[in-house]
Design a protein around this nucleic acid. Sequence first.
DNA 1: AGACAGGAGCAGT
DNA 2: ACTGCTCCTGTC
Length: 300
Amino acid sequence: MNPADLSGTRRLAVADYDLDATLGGGQAFGWSRVGEGWEGVVAGRWVRIEARDGAWTIRTARAETDWEWIDRYLGWDEDLAAVIATFPDDAPMRDAVAACRGLRLLRQDPWECLAGFICSTTKQVVQIQEMVALLARRHGDPVATPEGVAPRNAFPRPERIVEAGEAALRGCKLGFRAPYIWATAREVAEGRLDLDALAKRPEDEARAALMELPGVGRKVADCVLLFGLGFPNAFPVDVWIARALGRLYFPRARKLTQRRLVRFSTTHFGPHGGYAQQYLFHHARMNLGRAWAVDSAKKT
DNA sequence: AGACAGGAGCAGT
DNA sequence: ACTGCTCCTGTC
């Protein structure tokens, strides 16, 4: 290797992992498709991942001796077959698994995950990505990038969000979410909420603590529990899931309350309900489409 | 061009 | 417990 090239490169064989669905499917908002790969910032490091014929190339700006940070984030060594085996054996799940096999759950930084999903309310993925990118560009700390790659910042830590102030956050197109993010960042920055500690608490307690935060309701809290804190049974019910569940499991129901869907989802889908949810969600969005979902919602 | 988007919080019933 | 309204901002 050229001694002037200080970047780290790692190659490994990964099976049963759909990188596009996982990084671009709406569970994380900081990734961009660049050429044949994905580029983002994980644990304060710029990283590029290319998947080709089951072989991955992971590239970093600096040489790395320890890859635990990215292994943990991607969770590629998780036994997907074992997870899928816990799903209920019904037609909707079989269809979703057949269509999306290889879709995975990421293990994100809890703060970045929380901030991202506060931004997500009443927004579509591309718009959330834009807000998150603006926040990073204007308020995040720079990370090292390889020669020839444009400078890039990490997602701002809570302290930087607090410093930025609400007006600057509105400038990042956060709209009415600006005061939510700001106040939540302050709770974390000033030590009143220890996000990492939530992972060790019972799910109900962790959820309740999250829902104390401004801008965090049940759905956002469940996203953070599932995508950031590692609670495998957390099951975010957004409009897509609500429509999909209604159509697939309650085709004759007159109306479905959020509460009823939450109760159904947390009991019916087993110990890895969150994983099952991601499959149903992605399948409904990618393979069935909006017309399918909306039509079903109206056809009460 | 008015509704709507991968919600939350609030008041009112 | 449920309904209805508002909160920014783009997009179709």
